[in-house]
Amino acid sequence: MAEPNLLIDWDGPVARVTLNRPQQLNALNAALAAELHDFFSGLVRDRSTRVVILQAAGRSFCCGLDLKEQLVQPVHGDAEAALALQHSIRNIILAMRRCPQPIIGIVQGAASGGGLALALACDIRLMTPDARMNAAFIKVGLTGCDVGVSYFLNRMVGASVAAELILTGRFIDATRAVGLGLVSRVDTLQQLHEEARALASDMLATSPLGLRLTKDGLNHAIDGASLEAVIALEDRQQVLCTQTPQFVEAVSAFVEKRVPNYVQKI
């Protein structure tokens, strides 16, 4: 019986999602892409899952699109088929950004092309010392701007570095990535798994609504038209939070120096 392409394990409200095609360096084939999209798009309606940890089996995070599989079903000369293939990957990235749960990504080995896009769509990225990431699209006859990578890199590392990486397809290593703020921490894979658990634990200590709206606010702040527009959104979210029992419990727990006990409707 074939191994599943995607493994999903729940530890209470934390979903640990594992890309599980290690022999193919977790390349994105049609089945894996569909399962990733179904999982992340389903999170919009899932209030029991509060944090997601995205990781990969084997020595690499994700080497991008499975070109060997796609060459069996070529899209050259068929614009509709090419667009459908394009949407199958880009829709994962959109679903990751739209879901209200923070996503912690653990990157080892290579994160290339679509694999880079998956890493950039995470809210927090952790990276092993041997890991490398690149916008590989331009290496295979495409533009370097694909599935959101040009959007994320321009905002995360600035226009000059983004242009360097996208125009050349060069790899960025862990040392440079953490120096640029592209990743939060570089450490051994075991230590990164522990850090991911610790981050998830800290997030779970916050109110459920507050956590969801914080991710929403951060994403909108990236595209905010002005400081005033971002602050107006923050104002509305803060007022919304004050109207919930979670806010009352959080304040009571803070004053009483105890752990809050949040109850939310599922």
Rank of each mutant, 00 (worst) to 15 (best):
R185W: 14
G179V: 10
L165P: 03
V186P: 01
L167W: 05
A162R: 02
A163I: 02
I172P: 09
R185V: 08
L167G: 07
R197H: 11
I166K: 04
A200K: 11
T175I: 05
G158F: 07
L167A: 15
L165H: 11
I172R: 11
Q191G: 07
G158N: 12
A177K: 00
S160W: 10
L199I: 15
A162W: 00
A200G: 14
A163H: 13
A198H: 14
A198V: 10
R197I: 00
F171T: 08
G169E: 12
A163S: 08
V186K: 01
T188S: 15
R197A: 14
G181H: 02
R185H: 14
A159Q: 14
L180R: 07
Q190K: 13
V161Q: 13
S184A: 13
D187N: 05
Q191A: 13
V183I: 10
T175M: 14
A177Q: 01
R170Y: 07
F171I: 09
L182P: 09
A163V: 01
D173R: 07
T188E: 03
D187Q: 02
G169T: 13
R176C: 08
F171A: 11
H193M: 12
A200V: 11
A200Y: 01
A163P: 03
I166G: 01
T168I: 11
R155S: 06
V157C: 05
E194N: 12
R170P: 10
T168Y: 12
G169P: 07
V186Q: 01
V161H: 04
V186H: 00
A200S: 14
S160Q: 15
A196L: 06
L192A: 11
R185P: 08
S184H: 10
E194A: 15
L192I: 10
A174H: 06
L192D: 02
A196Q: 04
L199D: 01
A200R: 15
R170F: 05
Q190F: 09
L167S: 15
G181C: 03
L192H: 02
A198I: 09
G179S: 15
A174S: 14
V178F: 02
D173N: 10
R170H: 12
S184M: 05
A159C: 13
L192T: 04
L199H: 10
T188N: 06
D173G: 05
R170Q: 14
V186A: 02
T188L: 07
L180I: 03
V186T: 03
A177Y: 00
